[in-house]
């Protein structure tokens, strides 16, 4: 079960997600996303995570709503109090949240300290190895159940 029990910390890319204050203008957040290659910024106040702002939010909450990229602060349009994940959480848990809730960037926080964001691309890069693990597990499970069957039914 090694791969499924691998932790989020093993999947995090090398470049960390940008961190901004709630007062940062949207234009600055977009520049930071572009420079970092991440599709989100993490919003931190007094060291604590208070929100996340993504490329999707930029389209939906800024551009489509005709807000100014210079006069709007990220604190006005971010998703506040996002679900947080720990580096020690299972990768299968992160995959569940991405699938079920549609999250593509998960804030990673350790003991209150904001580390980075796990992107859906980080997960996808490793998904085929996760499948291999599941396939092995299921093969093992069916072998075990067969052995059990022969043990109980052998009669000898």
């Amino acid at each position: 079960m090694a791969r499924l029990q691998r932790t989020i910390s093993e999947f995090i890319g090398e470049r960390t997600a940008p961190i901004v204050e709630p007062t940062a203008p949207i234009a600055e957040c977009v520049e930071q996303m572009k420079a970092s290659g991440h599709s989100c910024v993490l919003v931190v106040e007094g060291g604590a995570l208070v929100g996340i702002f993504t490329g999707r939010d930029f389209v939906n909450r800024v551009l489509a709503e005709r807000r100014s990229v210079h006069e709007t602060s990220v604190g006005e349009v971010m998703t506040g109090e996002p679900e947080q994940f720990a580096p020690s959480d299972c990768i299968s848990y992160a995959i569940n949240r991405m699938a079920v809730r549609g999250f593509r960037n998960l804030p990673i926080v350790e003991d209150g300290r904001v580390i980075t964001a796990l992107s859906v691309h980080d997960v996808i890069a490793h998904l085929s190895s996760v499948f291999a693990e599941i396939a092995e597990l299921e093969a093992d499970a069916s072998e075990e159940s067969m052995e059990e069957w022969f043990d109980t039914g052998g009669g000898g």
């Binding site: 991405m98 699938a99 079920v100 996808i124 599941i134």
Partner: peptide, 12 residues
């Protein structure tokens, strides 16, 4: 990507 992940989660 979400379609793929959702399919995986439902499949397993």
């Amino acid at each position: 990507i979400r379609d793929l992940l959702r399919f995986v989660v439902r499949h397993y």
